[in-house]
Every structure is written in structure tokens, then in C-alpha cells.
Design a protein around this nucleic acid. Structure first.
Lengths: 152, 152
DNA sequence: CCAAGACGTTGGGTGCCCCAACGATAGCGC
DNA sequence: GCGCTATCGTTGGGGCACCCAACGTCTTGG
């Protein structure tokens, strides 16, 4: 019974289905890896974004990462509770909360980034480096349809 | 302000992140398309699998599509309620429920398959046919890590 | 000064995934 | 024949990601 009665070809050939399966595996691998540091995927992503963008509002973070404002509130709450970031009102726009990474956050981020990279390496273990780059290229063009990245 | 402050490079380069974003978009496109027939993604997948595999037990369906038995119960319940499939005890193994597609199910499947294909075409609109095939190949190898398909 | 809009926050809702348990049934060794 | 083990369908609970709607606070532009 080792031979799994495999995925019907009709469904298997659908990019949407494959994306779902691959994303599920990726999520599982990364989440399990980060769990060893008590970190969750979204929290790691936000922490990484804060580190790159510097003091930034929650709304900007949400737009950058496509995270719902509702979820962002709780993620930042958690990160603040763990003292990985600080949340202070922006003096120039008192509606905004300037989120800034802390030294402890920087240290944690260094560890979680290693774990995340390792998990992604395992995820793409079946691919050559060139194929991995191509996958990233294809996915980038699929994930953001109308929006071209202008960050160069 | 129209220029979105875009995804931090650190996160954007992670296959796991891109897979999540791309899968979310694919799910949204396909789900919206199928909703016009009152069908959900998983239901469509199960219906399609039943059509291909013929009378099949729920457990086999679950293994084929990586669907949790718990969800499978409700999916089949829904499909039975809509009279798209029939669920009858297998005389050869009375533990099993033989799920079979009905004529109405076949007709519905024809329509939903068109909708699903169209949604997938939109999903991969930014890709050339060759790139689309390559994406499918890469995703297939990523989604199923240890399991090689021998049905080639 | 007032209307429009953005920001953070709270609330509710859906879909997919995973784990644990249970009665009923089948296959196996003895 | 008789346990033992395993599978099947089913039920239950929980977590995470995603989405929509509303509200008070605050900024901005007319």
C-alpha cells in the first residue's frame, strides 16, 4: 500500500491546487522551524519587515506584507509583550504607531532568520539553485498580478 | 502615496512567503469563480476526483487529495445533499462508503471545471505557456517531497 | 471650520489544517 | 473459532490565515 492512489490528473494539473499544496508544506516547514524559537511565521515576517523598514506604522506594515489590520494589532501586541519591538505614538502624526525593533528583537531575528532560511532550503531541496531562482521569479509574477515592483 | 512601500526583500525572497501569497490569490480567484455555481474549491476537487476514480471510499479520496477525514465527511455530506454524488455502503467492505458521481454531478462538474480552468488561466496570465508548464513542474516537485510519482 | 479620509482597534465570520477519540468492521495469526 | 491489530467513517475540539464591517481618534484639504 505504499503506492498512494495518486492525485487525479485533472486536479493535479491546476496551478491553484499545486500552489495550495506547496504553500501548505512550506508553511508547515517554516512554522515548525520557527516554533523552536517560540516564533510564528507572521510574527517573524513583521519583525523582519520592521528591521528593514525602520520605524514604521502598522498600516504600512500591513500593506507591505498583505496582513489584515486586525491581525497586525495582535501580532504587534505579541511582539511588544516579548519586548522584541516597541510601539510609540508618532509625534508627527498622532494617528500612527511607530513600530521599532529592539536590540532583543534584532538578536531574535538573527536566529529566526537562520531557521527560516533552513526551512526554505528544505522546502526547495528537490530544486537546483537555478530552478529555485526561476521558481521565485515565476511566483513573484503570479503573486502580484497588476503590481510591478519598482524597488529595484 | 500610490507607490506601495513594498515587501521587504528579506521576506520577498522566501519561497515559503511567495507560495503563501500566490496560493492566497489562486484560492481567491478559483473560489470566486466557483461560487457562481454555488461550489466551493474542496467540493469541486472531490467531485472531480470521484469522476476520475469512479466509486471510491472517502478515505481514499482523503489520501488522494490530502483532505482531512473530518472535512471529507462534511464535503461528501454537502455533495450528497445537492445530489451530485451518492454514498452507499461498499458490500465488499462494509466499513467503506462507496462514493459515486451522479449524472447531475457530471453536469455540474463540466461547468465548474470550465470556471476553474478559467480562474487558473487568469492566475497564470502573466506567464507564457512554457513558463506555466515549468511552474507546474517545479511546484509538483516541491509539493510532494519524498513521494515520486511513478505514474509518468 | 468642516467634511473626507487615514489610523488603530474591536468584533464577527470562513476556510483549511491537525490531533484525538469512538463504534463498527475487516484481516491476520493462532 | 478467537483475539489482536488495523482501517473506516464519524464526531469533537483547536489553531492559523484571511476577509469584511464598524467605531473613535486624528490629520488633511477645501
Amino acid at each position: 500500500m505504499a503506492e498512494t492512489p495518486y492525485v487525479p490528473t485533472r486536479i493535479r494539473a491546476l496551478p491553484s491546487w499545486l500552489l495550495g499544496r506547496a504553500a501548505a508544506r512550506g508553511h508547515r516547514l517554516v512554522a515548525d522551524a520557527l516554533a523552536r524559537e517560540g516564533m510564528r511565521m507572521m510574527h517573524h515576517a513583521v519583525l523582519s519587515a520592521v528591521a528593514e523598514l525602520g520605524p514604521v506604522s502598522q498600516a504600512d506594515l500591513g500593506r507591505s506584507l498583505s496582513i489584515d489590520p486586525k491581525d497586525m494589532v495582535m501580532i504587534v501586541n505579541d511582539l511588544v509583550a516579548e519586548e522584541l519591538v516597541t510601539r510609540a505614538p508618532d509625534p508627527r502624526d498622532r494617528r500612527k504607531n511607530a513600530v521599532t525593533i529592539s536590540p532583543a528583537g534584532t538578536r531574535t531575528l538573527r536566529r529566526t532568520q537562520k531557521l527560516g532560511d533552513a526551512a526554505n532550503a528544505e522546502l526547495t531541496a528537490a530544486l537546483s539553485p537555478a530552478e529555485r531562482d526561476q521558481l521565485i521569479d515565476l511566483l513573484t509574477r503570479i503573486a502580484a498580478p497588476g503590481l510591478d515592483d519598482r524597488c529595484t
